[in-house]
């Protein structure tokens, strides 16, 4: 396991930032930690990096204490804004990092190139744009050639092209098989770059699934109906169906073509009480992470497997049927 978090708790005075968080991340995964501000993403990242210690629970990174993993260059990070000295040049900043990690000048040149800052190597950090500074942080993070790269809100404050360039660099790097965890509140970034999305709210994991599952859940519509003895296979065979779920007498179908599913259910089966709900990523995100959302179903609900009590909430049409599930 690259990252193992067990029952991690972090408090700041009366505020509990991380509240019994469990998370396991394997080698080579690209994971998005998604949640609103104050959800506990940064606190979690800090503990993975050994910048703070949990009040309870344990944090292991590549089988070691985080600080030890950091000192060995096994894990590195691109943090939010700040953390650079204005009166160093780009190259000097990376060279200092290299000195600390015992790396050569050639390694410095290599990461400057890969992070896309080689042509501004001689520029003072204070004269670099926000995007350039972020790519410099990326160069520093690449230098120890880490097994795990953590990005904390890496594109905050960047313009559109800065964000695109930054992700371009990350994406081409991730092809090498590095494990990447990034905290973000940009849904499109999680959607485009992660193969696994972990929703965090109030310091707990409220949903965890592959990007594909998330997409299936949040794009298109959900058709729900009462159909005792439902024929799951027949539903799966319909065009555009992503997900079929049978619970007691209730069948839930998630897919892109709700009309086709509804027509099938009403004309070819004895199904009744049919409901159709539409939703998008933005709404799903809000429902999952809103502060007034119920916690029924508990933490760690897996998207797509229907244990997602956390999908309830007063989100109106949004996944409304799940409310019924949550109360079971």
């Amino acid at each position: 396991m690259t990252v193992e978090l067990d029952g991690v708790v972090k408090r700041f005075g009366a505020v509990t930032a991380v509240d019994g968080l469990d998370l396991r991340i394997g080698a080579g995964e690209v994971v998005a930690l998604l949640g609103p501000n104050g959800a506990g993403k940064t606190s979690t990242v800090d503990m993975m990096l050994g910048l703070s210690a949990p009040d309870a629970g344990s944090v292991r990174v590549l089988g070691r204490a985080p600080r030890e993993a950091v000192a060995r260059g096994l894990v590195s990070a691109v943090m939010q804004t700040g953390g650079l000295l204005k009166d160093y040049t780009v190259a000097e900043t990376v060279r200092l990092t290299a000195v600390l990690f015992g790396r050569s000048r050639r390694d410095v040149d290599a990461v400057l190139e890969r992070a896309g800052v080689a042509e501004i190597a001689g520029r003072l950090v204070g004269k670099c744009s926000g995007g350039q500074q972020q790519r410099l942080r990326f160069a520093m993070a690449l230098l120890p050639d880490p097994e795990l790269l953590i990005l904390d809100e890496p594109t905050t404050g960047m313009d559109v092209s800065g964000r695109r360039d930054f992700w371009e660099a990350i994406r081409s790097d991730a092809r090498s098989g590095r494990t990447v965890i990034f905290a973000t509140h940009y849904l499109d970034e999680a959607d485009a770059y992660a193969d696994r999305v972990v929703f965090v709210r109030r310091g707990r994991v409220v949903a965890d699934g592959s990007a594909a599952q998330v997409k299936a859940m949040v794009s298109g519509r959900t058709v729900r109906a009462a159909w005792p003895g439902a024929d799951e296979a027949a539903l799966r065979a319909l065009p555009g169906v992503d997900e079929v779920e049978v619970r007691g007498d209730t069948v839930t179908v998630r897919g892109k073509d709700s009309d086709e599913v509804a027509r099938f259910l009403l004309t070819r089966t004895p199904a009744r009480d049919l409901e159709i709900a539409s939703h998008n990523l933005e709404e799903a995100f809000l429902a999952l992470t809103a502060d007034d959302a119920g916690t029924a179903g508990g933490p760690g609900a897996d998207i797509g497997r229907g244990q997602g009590g956390a999908l309830s909430a007063g989100g109106g049409v949004l996944i409304s049927g799940d409310e019924r599930e949550a109360t079971r």
């Binding site: 080579g28 060995r72 390694d107 290599a110 097994e147």
Partner: peptide
Amino acid sequence: TITADERRGPGGGRGPGERRV
């Protein structure tokens, strides 16, 4: 060198045990 092409993925190449402080 540490170019992306030469990396053999996590755990490959330079194993965690070989890294020194």
